[in-house]
Structure formats: C-alpha cells, structure tokens
Design a binder for these strands. Structure first.
Lengths: 256, 256
DNA sequence: AATAATAAGTGTCAAATATACACTTAATAA
DNA sequence: TTATTAAGTGTATATTTGACACTTATTATT
C-alpha cells in the first residue's frame, strides 16, 4: 500500500498564466539572471513558472501550488491542457545553466504536465522579486525565447485558450468582478484576433444569460459611462450548454 | 547534453481504444488471469492497454507503440487527452497482483498520460492471446471494473470523445473506408446517446463536404441498397472550420 | 408470381439565429 | 460652447435549424 521510490525528479507541472490588462493579453513569466561563465555577465532568461511534483501531490495540487506561490491567489481557473515529454526537451545546452540553478538532478529526464491559468491580473501582487529572479507580465506578442520547450507549451496554451473561449464561458476569468461590455468585447477580440460587431456581441452575451447588468456605471470617463456587468458563475456552471454557440434551448447546434 | 537517470518506472501511457461494430461502441481491453494466493484460483482482471515510457520514446511514440503491439496497426487516430497522477492511483491492494506481474518496480509511483484511439475495428486482427493474457472488445455499456484508476480514465475518454465528435470530423475514424449514411448516423447516435433526424443529418453531412458519395452500393441486403460514402480526410484537414457546427463559410458561429 | 418486410432516400415550410449596418447619448476635454 | 470619445440601441435580410411522411429498391415469404 505504500509507494517507495520517488517520482520527483521526473515529473513537473508548468503553468501558462494568462492575464489581460491595457487591452493586451499577457503571460506571467519568470525572469532570471543566470551567470554566463564565458561572458562573465548575466544572461537574462525567461521561463514558464513550474516545479517538480512532490511526492504527496497530485498534478492539480502541484500546479495550484506553483500558481499560489507566485501570485498568492487560490481558487483560480486552472486547467490541465497537455503533457510534454520529449526525451530531450530539457537537454539543450542553452538550458543547462538554468537547469543547474533550479534542479538537484539536472540530468534527469522530465516530462511536464502543462496547465493553463486565467487570472484577473489586477488581483495579483507580484512578489517583489530578488535580483536573480523576478516575475513579469509580458504581452503575448512580445514573448521572448523561453527556456526548454516552453515556447511550444505557450503556443499550445494560446491555441487551447482560443478554442475554449468560444465554447465555454471562461473569458470572464480574465476580467475583474465588474466589467463593462466594452472590456469584455475587447478581451474576446484580442483572444480571437478578429473584430466583432458591437451590437451582435452584446445581444449574444446578454441572451446567453451568463452575465447580469449592475446599476452601477463608470465614473470619471470622458465619454458616456459604461454600465458594469458581473459574470453569473453559478448560472453558467449549472447551464453548461445554454451558452455561446450552443442553441438557446440547450441543445447542440450540430444535429437536430 | 545527455540525460542519465531514467524516467522509466514513473511515467506510462495508457490507451483508451474505441471501436464500433454491431451498432455498439466498444473498448479494447486487456484481460488477464491472475493467480489469487488466497483462493488458489485465477482472478480475471481487466485493464486498459498501456506501458511505461521507454528512455528513447516521446509520449506519442510510446502510445503508438502500445497500440501497434496490440493491433498491428500504424497511422491510427491517436490523441492525448489527459494525464492522471494521483499519488495513490496504483497503490490499491486490489491492484497489487497485476502490478507485480507486469512491473519490475511495483512500488514506484506512476503517472500516466492517457490517449484516445479511434479505430476501424474490422482492421484489427487481435493477437491470439495466451492463457494468461488476452485482448478483448467490450461494449462500452458492459465495461467491468478495471485495474487502477482505469475506469476513471475510460470515462474521461468517453466524455472527450462525445465532445470532440461534435466539433471535429473524427467519427469517420471508427468506420471502414466505405460506409453508408445509415452506419454513420448510427455511429453518431451511439456516441451522442440521442436520436438524430435522418434527413437533417444527411443534409448536414453532405453540405459539410467532408464525405463524398461513391457510385457503389450495398449488395445482398433485403432492402433498398444504401450508397457508400468515403471520408475526405484531406479536405477535412485543410478546411478545419468548414464543418459541423461551424458556419459553412468557415467562420465561427459564435460572434459575427 | 404476388405480397410483405425492411431500410434507403428525398423536399418543404416555419422558426431561430446570424449578419450587416448608422445614429443618438452622456460624459469630459478643449 | 464645441469637440471628442466610447456607450448604447433596432431592424431587415440571409442562413441555418428543426420538424415532418411518403416513395423506392431490394430480399424474404407465401
């Protein structure tokens, strides 16, 4: 009944953490200064947040821990989307320095279970960060070269986000509790990379029932103040098929 | 550049292999006779096919190997869908005998990357099978208790199949090259667990462009012979959004 | 040879949904 | 007072969905 040898050096979780601010989708990355033996300068390297899975953790727990350590937040939308296990995925020489700085056993083959997190970036208080390690929000169109296979992982995450946002009401996870229709539309336009019609978007969102208007409106804006809306998380979860490109009666649109 | 310690006892791939025959969705399972020390009889136990990932394999390769060893088939639709890593997922006493019979290190914690395969079950020649181990097709509504967490894995696979079959043209992978509209509809009805309208189903399938009629028809049936169709794999792959509940012009139905 | 049985194949109309599109309003800034 | 900005709103057309019943081609039965 007991399990002896440890998984630990061989399985990790990595988190692709999306945020949305200033009309831009952003990624939360770890930036490290790694001494370069040749140049005697510090290389600036980036990677996705992640860690090896501990012996008493399951995969979700591990990813949640990574997320919580970084952001201080719990109960965040976090979902497993793909596992990466190429035998040489962490074996490139360029990644050696990073690996040595974070791993007891830098030679171990590691497969990683990748998670996608969606957070309201305004809720995050980034830890101050030491000289050698910092957490930074990077606009998705400015994502630099990342360690290991993390660029591929990020690209898969973005593709998964784009797909899922059209099927499930998850966009709201990236916005504050109260948001305007304009913010919501701009979020969808950013993720889907296309323009949406204001009136049709509004109609569809309202009709779906997943958001409710507040009486409260913006103040201090130099234009007509927008009404605030809230996401009906409970409604959305109890009516999983009454949304978006599913029919209003809850049936699928595919076959009658 | 080289990787020394082995992942091997800690990461496996398991395959949920679906087939469709006699109007029934079926699962390919391993049945083993395991000697029970107490009863001195053999227990009959079932599990999903799977194996530990070898040092030179990536995850897809490993799953493909498992599938090929079992069915002799290559180039099969096989897709990763979820990874399972509970610390105690293989630690139940009931699974101990099986584990000892297949693993060098039965105490090692193992996480498993689960794959879903869709195959034309008529293509499979099941290997004869020894006394102690056999491969069997089991109707999905008669799936017995499986080893480890394999019942959960199977259920997740079925849910994923049900979801994906509505979004992507993957149902065809379960049918022979040539199939009738009736077979196709019956397959969809089985997976979706609801009746579909014959005329609407036909219209949608034809309009989607992913299947083409042949001139060939059934022979020897005691009713009007059905026309055969083939799946246009190339077309479907090059027009990923022109199908099913996506608009015919290729745009999504979600927002205009 | 005639009849029964079976599954294939076909068309239309009404309802729902998607798409396209432009002006008015409420606030601050100039 | 005027300009600027983004919010907010309605309608008409095209497309898609969903509901629905009879004819046809074949073999089996008598």
């Amino acid at each position: 009944m007991s399990i002896t040898p440890s998984l630990n050096p061989h399985v990790s979780t990595d988190c692709v953490i999306f945020g949305f601010s200033q009309e831009t989708l952003r990624l939360l990355l770890i930036r490290r200064n790694i001494p370069n033996r040749l140049t005697e300068l510090n290389d600036i390297l980036y990677a996705l947040p992640g860690d090896l899975v501990k012996d008493d953790e399951n995969l979700d727990t591990s990813a949640n821990r990574v997320l919580a350590e970084l952001t201080g937040l719990k109960g965040i939308y976090l979902t497993q989307f793909q596992t990466f296990g190429d035998p040489l995925r962490i074996a490139k020489t360029k990644d050696r320095a990073w690996l040595e700085s974070v791993r007891q056993d830098p030679d171990a083959r590691v497969i990683t279970v990748a998670y996608m997190a969606l957070i309201d970036s305004h809720k995050v208080n980034l830890q101050p960060g030491s000289f050698s390690e910092e957490t930074v929000w990077v606009p998705i169109h400015e994502v630099p070269e990342l360690a290991f296979d993390h660029n591929e992982i990020y690209e898969q995450a973005l593709a998964a986000l784009k797909e899922r946002v059209q099927m499930q009401p998850i966009g709201f996870e990236l916005l504050p509790e109260k948001f305007t229709m304009g913010q919501l539309q701009s979020l969808y336009e950013t993720i889907l990379e296309r323009d949406l019609d204001k009136r049709n978007f509004r109609r569809k969102m309202i009709n779906s029932g997943v958001i409710s208007p507040l009486t409260e409106k913006q103040i201090g804006v130099s234009n007509k103040p927008a009404r605030y809306y809230v996401y009906n998380r409970e409604f959305a979860q109890s009516n999983p098929s009454s949304i978006f490109n599913l029919r209003m009666d809850g049936s699928f649109t595919l076959f009658n």
